[in-house]
Nucleic acid binder design. Structure first.
Lengths: 226, 226
DNA sequence: AACTGTTTACATCGTTTCATCACATCAGCA
DNA sequence: TGCTGATGTGATGAAACGATGTAAACAGTT
């Protein structure tokens, strides 16, 4: 039986992205688009954890958090725009358990959800540790953030690693540049999609001896194929 | 009361073609065949806009433009042979408001004239927006450059669309291949008239379900009949 | 300065669009 | 009917366009 996570945001795109990643790790995701709907779902459905956007119509995150806390100890991860007063959010007036700055990397969201659930003593049915990925002669260890090809360790930079991990988690699946920007850079990264190309080029250069290859799907994006 | 446009060119054929299309859209057209006559007309008659060929006997377009600018802010569209130094023309030394490369499509000339007049805040008495064309089960939207037959969108290439639009704007009127080349390809397109036939064939194939038909008028040309 | 990441600039590649050719077919006419 | 020039249309190659690869310039951190 998997934990139910409630994701609350007025932007459906963010919900979709979070949902995709949480479900991939074995969670069940419910969603709400405004504070009032969120409040109802939290009290009625009793999710194991709530991801709550601060800025919302109807009832904002602060108010939802305050009202929930009056009746429940459900863990809450607050999502905030950068620059908002972080101190007030965590552990203080509001009693949120953690926070995440926008734009967030969905993989980081998953990591925090797992961390909080672990801390709360709830045993996640989702494999609580990230597993090694092994494709051909490529071995990725997400815990240590290391990449090994034929027993040789490869030194990757952060973006390169995230990019490779994303592709390797779903081999043979094509990722558009936009999708990669969403996942690796965060959902509202404002820059050029061409940036992806440059990191792909770096990866190809460093991973010359890798047996799975990063293939270009013309007009669409990239995929990793064995 | 319609705007007066002055068209200046040493080739009477170009003037005639431009005049036909501009008048069809509700403008009044005056013309001049050389730079000196142009200068006089501009200063005496004060047209709302000037279409000026760069290459002319007596006074060339550069010189005319320079002298006009000394006394007047009348919008000028410069017509140039391809490959001439565009940057020098628009907004720089010469102060022209727009330019058009030869050979130009008369429909595009009309569009630019309207755009400039709109930008200049002069309200065109010509219906300033292109209207949809609807014949039988055929609907053409020139703004979006879309073609719909029986609620099904048809994907046309640029030349195909221009050709169809030209025929559909004057249903039951026969267009010779030369006329179609003038209007769709530009007035001094040098190629084969048979090129028209090929595009007509493409159109007939794509528009099989269209109720108006493209008819061949033997020895003359094509027309669209309901 | 060293390091990382982003953007820019230009070369290259793949696709689409177009013009022309080649040949088949057709309309008109004797 | 047979002839002739006009038209229909698939095939082909060239050009235009847009996508991608990649080095190098630039910007921000540490």
């Amino acid at each position: 039986m998997s934990e139910r996570i409630l994701v609350v945001d007025d932007d459906q795109h963010i919900i979709d992205l979070a949902q995709m990643y949480l479900e991939q790790d074995g969670f069940t995701v419910e969603s709400a688009n405004d504070g009032r709907a969120a409040l109802n779902k939290i009290l009625d459905d009793e999710p194991a954890l709530v991801v709550l956007d601060l800025m919302m119509p109807e009832l904002d995150g602060w108010e939802v958090c305050r009202r929930v806390r009056a009746q429940s100890d459900v863990p809450i991860i607050m999502v905030t725009a950068r620059g908002e007063d972080i101190d007030k959010i965590v552990g203080l007036e509001l009693g949120a358990d953690d926070y995440l700055a926008k734009p967030f990397n969905p993989r980081e969201l998953v990591a925090r959800v797992k961390a909080i659930l672990r801390r709360s003593g709830i045993k996640s049915s989702a494999g609580s540790e990230q597993k090694k990925i092994s494709i051909g002669n490529l071995v990725i260890n997400p815990q240590h953030r290391t990449v090994i090809i034929d027993d040789t360790s490869i030194d990757l930079r952060m973006k390169e690693f995230d990019l490779l991990q994303t592709l390797a988690e779903n081999p043979n699946i094509v990722f558009s540049r936009e999708k990669l920007l969403n996942v690796v850079w965060g959902y509202d990264f404002a820059g050029e999609t061409r940036t992806v190309d440059v990191h792909i080029a770096h990866l190809r250069h460093k991973l010359e001896r890798m047996s799975p290859e990063i293939e270009t799907v013309w007009g669409v994006g990239y995929k990793l194929v064995e």
